[in-house]
């Protein structure tokens, strides 16, 4: 029975399909995490401005995204937009938009708290040396905020990778779904396949997130010296 289970992994196109599923997962994760980092930094900087209107809008945006489950957001982007406005996005595009909206909001809040944790004196001594606002952020504030940002941002990125499995509900077939398809197709002929497939998925997820953790540890170590 055992060997029958593992054989399923290598039968026909199964292995390739699982890897193609992983590719969808990685593509979605990489695009949305990178975009969220860039837009989240801008959003975080906007949030530290003491402009009432900006503060109000960003706050509402953040609360809205936080209150809405990601699944609801995915349904709104994929089905809701079609129904309300006749806009027909592909499942992948809808997923990219929702994940960027979500990632930007969460990342923005992380950047905001990292920025306000930098003492006021750092801003002032920089200003007294003649740095412009942009130079101040680029050379002094952001590099220091980044160091505090790495652990929570890593956490967010990992959460985003894991949450990509939700996109199956708007028709995007990623790794986990491919796994379920393979398991169900062999449900009657090789019930132990489930163990092997989930094991393979675990390793593939692990090896997708592991480089991130390694890179973060490496950066943290380098900055500690």
């Amino acid at each position: 029975m055992q060997d029958l289970g593992i054989r399923v992994l290598f039968e026909g196109e199964n292995g390739i399909r699982l890897l193609l599923g992983l590719l969808v997962t990685i593509k979605l994760s990489v695009i949305t995490i990178i975009a969220s980092c860039i837009l989240g930094t801008i959003m975080g900087m906007l949030m530290t401005l003491r402009h009432p209107a900006v503060h109000f809008i960003t706050r509402i945006y953040l609360e809205f995204i936080r209150i809405m489950p990601q699944l609801v957001l995915l349904f709104i982007a994929y089905f809701g937009l079609t129904r309300a406005a006749g806009i027909n996005l592909s499942g992948f595009t809808a997923a990219v938009i929702v994940f960027i909206l979500w990632g930007t909001a969460e990342m923005g809040d992380l950047v905001r708290s990292a920025l306000i944790s930098i003492p006021r004196n750092q801003y002032e001594s920089g200003a007294a040396l003649g740095f412009s606002k942009i130079q101040l952020y680029r050379f002094i504030i952001l590099p220091q905020a980044l160091r505090r940002l790495i652990p929570p941002a890593m956490n967010l990125a990992t959460r985003m990778i894991m949450t990509t499995s939700l996109v199956v509900l708007i028709g995007v077939v990623e790794m986990l779904k491919v796994g379920q398809q393979i398991i169900e197709a062999n449900r009657y002929t090789a019930p132990t396949a489930a163990l092997w497939i989930y094991g393979a998925i675990f390793f593939l997820y692990f090896f997708s997130c592991w480089p991130l953790t390694l890179a973060a540890n490496c950066l943290e170590k380098r900055w500690k010296e």
Binding site: V8, G12, E13, R17, V173, K177, Q181, E184, A185, Y188
Partner: peptide, 17 residues
């Protein structure tokens, strides 16, 4: 369905069955 054998599933060649 793509994962409800034997009604709608994907075979090992990647085809709907």
């Amino acid at each position: 369905f793509s994962d409800k054998a034997p009604f709608g599933y994907i075979d090992k060649e990647g085809n709907y069955q």
